[in-house]
Amino acid sequence: MSHAQQIEAHAAQFLARRQAPDWSAVDQAALDEWLRTSTLHEVTYLRLEYGWSRVDRLAALRDPAPVTAALPAQRPPRWKPWAAAIAASLALVTSTLWYAHRSGYETYATAVGIRQTVPLTDGSHMELNTDTLVRAALDDTARTVWLERGEAYFDIVSDPARPFVVHAGAQRITVLGTKFTVQRDDDSVQVVVTEGRVRLEQADRGAAAAPVIMTSGDAVLSQGGQTHLQARDAQALARELSWRQGMLTFDQTTLGEAAAEFNRYNRRRLQISEAAAGVRIGGSFEATNMAAFVRLLEEGFDLRAVEHGNTIRIDY
């Protein structure tokens, strides 16, 4: 192997491991150090990262149909009262269970701009938002879902014998029979509860961190180990969930934030100049109709839109 190829092999090894769940701060430090050593390392790593992200399309374009064939046995949903559900889920969620059921799961994915409802065998439903990847494992003793990326709305049938647990990054959300959404962007996880209650825990902290019980109207944003609980009024809740109708709803939202939302649903990118990013806007927009939004910015806000390849740059 030439020198360049050795560097490339080394970079690929870092990149492959980086995507693994056991990637630690020590590993990250080793990678940072390696990247700092030489620009040759840095550009090679970036090139692989760029090309590999294009291979991601493989997962993203797949219909939200099961990828794996291992189907858990079907059985009718059982309904039980609230108190029993809480007690049972407290008792049953242990890390052993978590591992024991990792093998027979199904994978569901949506492409950018696509939204789809997925029925689960227990009668529950997941509604996947744009560019979302979810794994689900349901069997007789547990119901577990891993939100790998994106956003999903859950409408869960209560079943005390089988707690419903959603893993999103470091967060573990135990469902106590309810409707809620989880949005994940790498380490940052947002949970909004519309009905019923869920319990939120940092999965990697074990018993050390106190769990948060969230009820209807609560929203939690967790980022880098910090967790913030906020209450949402009915209007704000409706806004948060307008994606389920394919709409984005803004109220006093900065243009920068609105653009970030649009970019989740479209292959074309909106890029807002620093000067324009603070402009506040309101209204409802079709998530995949970026053109209409851009037209509004041009006509209503006197902003200029310049297209450059896949990017639309907005500026004064």
Binding site: E8, A12, A16, R47, G51, W52
Partner: peptide, 17 residues
């Protein structure tokens, strides 16, 4: 698995580019 992954990653990225 890791060895195959590293090789596959390099070859696929090369092909994509």
């Amino acid at each position: 698995v890791e060895r195959q992954m590293v090789q596959g990653m390099r070859a696929l990225v090369d092909f994509m580019l």
